[in-house]
Write a protein that binds this DNA or RNA. Structure first.
Length: 795
RNA sequence: GGGCCUGUAGUCUAGUGGCUAUGACGUUGCCUUCACGAGGCAAAGGUCGAGGGUUCGAAUCCCUCCGGGCCCACCA
């Protein structure tokens, strides 16, 4: 059999992608008894239409694992999915159509979001998943806005409500004034900035003055108290007195609290409702009045008097100006400050008192850490990050969002008595603004209801991804069999959200872990080591690379070099290397196939070098298999590449040429070579198949398909060890001498064909006997004898 | 401020107690070789961030310092 001279990926790759899909190679087999391996795939955001190389790597990295497990004999459950739910989509639609939720009805807005999502999903499916040769079972597809996913999210809420894990409260809440919604702690991102610390003079009620340092003068109208440290001698006499807030004439009490930092500013703090979390703490502890002066869209309200209607920034400037006019500003200094911001828009968050729904988390910290320890983390150290996050939690999870596009919170309130009314499980999903409760209020009998208008935090759905993926409500028997899932692959930046909330939900609902393994994928940086962002202009697009290299396998080779959990700066030369590797693989296979025209019979006796190769291959197979199980993909690729290139090509192929071409060597020696070539190459292709599926499929189909039972290499059996005597060490010794001979020829500027005399150390004579003929042929040694030391000379 | 990761040749990288520190890219030299010249064979290139300690033995374990990155918490 002869292969074409060059490998042409542009024709070959799409051909097999089509074949795999048509032949349903990756179909999950519901009736199989094989052990199931299930992956909780991260649903890509539908707004992330532009796919940079980091996304491609992330999704391909665990796809390799799916392929490995499939070949290793598992019934792989690999469901594709999309996240078309939540703020990113809303924001994308708002920007694309230049609309806001104020100028369009909820229904219209949702429709646009859904349309937009579907478009992007299509692009994703074709240009990403299919183009990268991913082995999803498309019949298992889910999206997070599907009725079924909504049903799961709402069911989760109802279940937790009934268990007492959900409550509604009017509390100071983390608030984004741009998105005009409550946020969860996990959605807050700290940003460093420089601000001005203003020293402002307050009058005391009974005469005298004090100076207070603040970065938030715009919150003066919300000031409800002043604190000093109980041990601060300077201010002991102030405690119990009242101060007057300048410009606003508010009388506020001066109190003591140990948490005051005497070193900071003047050592006197004003407390406003609310400037930061300490304000909330003191407000609760000292039972201070509430005076909120900020509106939901980040402006001052009527409590701010003449500043009403100004944005926070404008108000800050105006108030400082007026204070300066009245000589109330003692000094101003620059201050480095970290502020919490909305992770989507970087608007500094505010604290507003609003009615929100919460899931209890703070009381389960210990248990959640225990749950985390039952899961295997790859790499292990990321478990620490999870535990740190859980330990540091300071808010229950706020799950209600004042947004449009999302899963509605399935609740009505009785208009008469305020009672919370839940829908029946069988009626889910519901939209309380459209649907009505089926019964009157159980408490008062009223039939008038107020629908809940808020939607869920997007993580309310995402945290149920294992339950959605394996169809918790639709197929309870499947769920029972498949929960916990086998693997959650994800990136490290969402350990505190996705991983955390998923673990939380599995714990609260089932007292179970959601998956046995969690593996943290590689984070791709630009060549200079910075994060890739469309906005920074440093993103490298997968599509461009596909066009340039014309091969998916080249990109997948690069993915294979990445280590799980470790950042990887993108270096294009890794693709060049991949391309060379594919060429080498093609050419070596081409050579092998010239000698494979039938399924080789088992030789009567294997030649020594064949035993050497197969013994070394055994070690490779066992190492690679072990490492694939441990998500150590880069090891697998590296070791296989090393074996293929330097052991198989550089040495073995050169060694067997004589037996294949030289009739004088006899038929048995040739059969042994052919047998070894066949199985060694087939094994190498299989070891590489999870990483570079297209070229290995092409070679399998061309060279092996007619002799092998499986219609695709990707559902063939993972290579097994050969029954063979271990000649690896003796063989290595002899190959070393072959290298010596090559070095001798090269350094004497002679062709490798040059004929030579060799004297080999006498103590190797016994080892050499079985390798002799192959050795003489590959080194072109005309005379070979044994003596004191290794000696090589030209004839 | 707390925690985690990381520092190996010009560049990137493997290596968590043991032969002479892995491999790639790049550089240089040689070989047209019957699978492959988009190749092959070889060479040069390293105080394994610095210092100290443990050990028969340290890139690897411990301590200190320096550099790079990430996560978290904070100051009104």
């Amino acid at each position: 059999m002869e292969l074409p001279k060059t490998y042409n990926p542009e024709e070959i790759e799409p051909k097999w992608q089509k074949y795999w899909e048509e032949e349903k190679i990756y179909k999950f087999d519901e009736s199989s008894n094989k052990e199931i391996y299930s992956i909780d795939v991260p649903p890509p955001y539908a707004s992330a239409g532009h796919l940079h190389i980091g996304h491609a790597l992330h999704y391909t990295q665990f796809e390799i694992i799916a392929r490995f497990r499939r070949m290793a004999g598992y019934n792989v459950y690999f469901a594709p999915c999309f996240d078309n739910n939540g703020l990113p989509t809303e924001k994308f639609v708002e920007e694309k159509y230049n609309i806001s939720k104020k100028t369009i009805t909820k229904a219209e807005f949702r429709k646009l979001c859904l349309e937009e999502s579907r478009k992007v999903e299509k692009i994703y499916a074709d240009k990403v998943f299919r183009a990268l040769g991913h082995s999803y079972d498309w019949s298992l597809l889910y999206t997070t806005i599907d009725p079924e996913a909504q049903k799961v999210a709402q069911m989760s809420f109802i279940d937790l409500y009934k268990s007492g894990y959900v409550y509604r409260a009017e509390e100071p809440t983390l608030w984004c004034t741009k998105h005009q919604t409550a946020l969860a702690q996990a959605e807050i991102e700290d940003v460093q900035r420089t601000t001005i610390l203003n020293y402002i003079e307050f009058d005391l009620e009974d005469g005298g003055k004090i100076t207070i340092a603040t970065t938030r003068p715009e919150l003066l109208p919300a000031c409800v108290g002043i604190f000093v440290h109980p041990n601060d001698k300077r201010y002991k006499n102030l405690i119990g007195k009242n101060a007057i807030v300048p410009l606003f004439d508010l009388k506020v009490p001066i109190m003591e609290d140990e948490k005051v930092d005497m070193e900071f500013g003047t050592g006197i703090v004003m407390i406003c409702t609310f400037g930061d979390t300490t304000d909330i703490e003191w407000w609760k502890k000292h039972k201070l009045p509430l005076r909120i002066c900020i509106t939901e869209d980040g402006k001052l309200n009527e409590k701010a008097g003449k500043y009403c209607g100004l944005t926070l920034e404008e108000a800050k400037e105006a108030i400082i100006n007026d204070l300066e006019v009245k000589n109330r500003v003692v000094k101003k200094e620059k201050l480095q400050q970290t502020v919490g911001t909305c992770w989507r828009c970087n608007t500094p968050i505010e604290y507003l008192v609003t009615k929100q729904w919460f899931i209890k988390t703070l009381e389960f910290k210990e248990e959640l850490i225990k749950q985390g320890r039952k899961i295997r983390w790859y790499p292990e150290f990321y478990r620490k990050r999870y535990e740190d996050w859980v330990k540091n939690l300071s808010w229950d999870w706020c799950i209600s969002r004042q947004r449009f596009y999302g899963v509605p919170i399935p609740v009505w309130y009785c208009k008469n008595c305020g009672n919370v009314i839940l829908p029946d499980e069988k009626d889910l999903p519901v939209d309380p603004e459209i649907d009505l409760p089926k019964k009157n209020c159980e408490k008062c009998g009223s039939n008038e209801f107020i629908p809940e208008k808020d939607v869920f935090d997007t993580w309310m759905t995402s945290s149920m991804s294992p339950e959605i993926a394996v169809r918790w409500l639709e197929k309870p028997e499947r769920f029972k069999k498949m929960f916990p899932m086998s693997l959650r692959p994800q990136s490290h930046d969402i350990i505190r959200t996705w991983a955390f909330y998923t673990i939380l939900k599995a714990f609260l609902h089932f007292n179970e872990i959601p998956w046995r393994d969690i593996a943290i994928g590689t984070f791709v940086l630009d060549p200079k080591g910075r994060g890739m962002h469309k906005s920074k202009g440093n993103a490298i697009w997968t599509e461009d690379l596909l066009k340039k290299y014309k091969s998916v396998d080249v990109i997948r080779y690069w993915v294979g070099t990445a280590t799980w959990g470790k950042d990887l700066p993108f270096k294009e030369k890794e693709l060049v290397r991949g391309k060379k590797f594919l060429t080498k693989l093609w050419n070596a296979s081409r050579f092998c196939f010239m000698h494979i025209d039938e399924k080789p019979e088992k030789p009567k006796k294997l030649e020594a070098f064949d035993k050497w190769l197969l013994a070394k291959l055994n070690k490779l197979i066992s190492n690679v298999t072990k490492n694939f199980y441990e998500y150590n993909t880069s090891f697998c690729l590296r070791e296989t590449e090393e074996f293929f290139w330097h052991v198989f090509c550089d040495n073995y192929l050169e060694i067997v040429k004589d037996r294949l071409y030289n009739k004088a060597r006899g038929e048995d020696a040739k059969i042994s070579a052919k047998y070894t070539l066949y199985y060694a190459l087939l094994s190498i292709l299989k070891l590489l198949a999870p990483i570079i599926p297209h070229i290995t499929e092409e070679l399998y189909q061309r060279g092996f398909r007619k002799f092998e039972e499986h219609k695709s290499i990707h559902i063939s059996d993972w290579p097994k060890k050969f029954e063979v005597e271990d000649y690896s060490e003796i063989g290595d010794k002899i190959v070393e001498i072959v290298s010596e001979v090559r070095k001798f020829k090269t350094s004497n500027k002679k062709s490798l064909k040059a004929e030579i005399d060799i004297v080999i150390q006498k103590d190797l004579e016994k080892d050499f006997s079985e390798f002799l003929e192959d050795f003489k042929a590959v080194t072109n040694a005309k005379n070979l004898s044994f003596g004191e030391n290794l000696k090589i000379s030209f004839l």
